[in-house]
């Protein structure tokens, strides 16, 4: 199935806004900044998955470390066919398959729990190590926020993967510069972020995180890198696509009201790129 990637990004943005509004709470800012990354992974012929057989043994794995952006993941999984799109309207509601933060037992297409920040890369490393030991060629992708890089465990994992030569790990940093209480720079800066990862032994690829074709290319470059893990530093804008949300920490975890939703959807639908 040939998918127009830009069109899919627009659809996913609409899903994110609509589902968070319907839920009455959620995290639009980081969901919107991750859209192109997620669409590239699932629709850009990057990850090997089978929506009809979510537990297919030979699948590549995606670990969402910044679990609060569940809406972007749920939208992409639904659009990929892991579960009906109608389920998106049940986000965060009692009995829903879509928990506020992801949990494998509830939702087809997930690998683990997510939401407590700083942990996903360690889990991804464990899966990748097991794949190495099994001798399979499967790859493991892990999406992290930039704010969560303030968690110490990230750097435990950042030391582990190069030590174990896990070239089947591809981490992605959604570098949107904004966290709950303000900008990353004012709270705990990540200056020279590419150099930090490089110093830890990673193959660093910087990419425009809103250029879906560039992302697809970057993922393919990462897959060609041998003997060390790769990290994509995706330069993004928090709240991307909605003018009043962009770069504003107040939209990290806020829900748009009906009027705001209408404006946001109009902006997203009208976007030309």
């Amino acid at each position: 199935m040939e998918v127009n990637l830009k069109e899919m990004c627009r659809t996913v943005r609409e899903d994110i806004l609509t589902m968070i509004h319907a839920a009455g709470s959620g995290h639009p800012g980081g969901s919107l900044s991750s859209v192109e990354i997620m669409v590239a992974l699932y629709f850009g012929d990057v990850m090997k998955v089978d929506a009809k057989n979510p537990d297919w043994n030979d699948r590549d794995r995606f670990i969402l470390s910044k679990g609060h952006v569940a809406p972007v993941l749920y939208s992409v999984l639904a659009r990929k066919g892991f579960f009906p799109v109608e389920e998106l309207g049940t986000l965060r509601k009692f009995g829903s398959i879509l928990q506020g933060h992801p949990h494998k037992a509830h939702t087809p297409g997930l690998e683990c729990s997510a939401g407590s920040l700083g942990q996903g890369l360690s889990v991804a490393n464990g899966i990748a190590l097991a794949f190495k030991k099994l001798g399979t060629g499967q790859r493991v992708y892990c999406l992290m926020g930039d704010g969560e890089l303030q968690e110490g465990q990230i750097w435990e994992a950042a030391m582990f993967a190069p030590q174990q030569k896990l070239d089947n790990v591809c981490a992605i940093v959604d570098y949107n510069h904004v966290q709950l209480d303000g900008t990353v720079e004012e709270i705990k800066s990540l200056d020279n972020l590419p150099a930090r990862w490089n110093d830890f032994g990673w193959n660093v690829i910087e990419v425009d995180g809103h250029d879906v074709n560039a992302l697809v290319h970057a993922f393919k470059l990462a897959a060609l890198t041998k003997d060390r893990p790769s990290v994509l530093i995706a330069h993004t804008v928090k709240g991307k696509g909605v003018s009043f949300m962009e770069g504003d920490c107040n939209w990290h975890g806020n829900c748009p009201n009906a009027e705001q939703l209408a404006q946001a959807l109009a902006e997203v639908r009208g976007a030309t790129s």
Partner: peptide, 8 residues
């Protein structure tokens, strides 16, 4: 968490 990943 590495162990958790391996167990999956």
């Amino acid at each position: 968490d590495v162990a958790a990943g391996m167990a999956t």
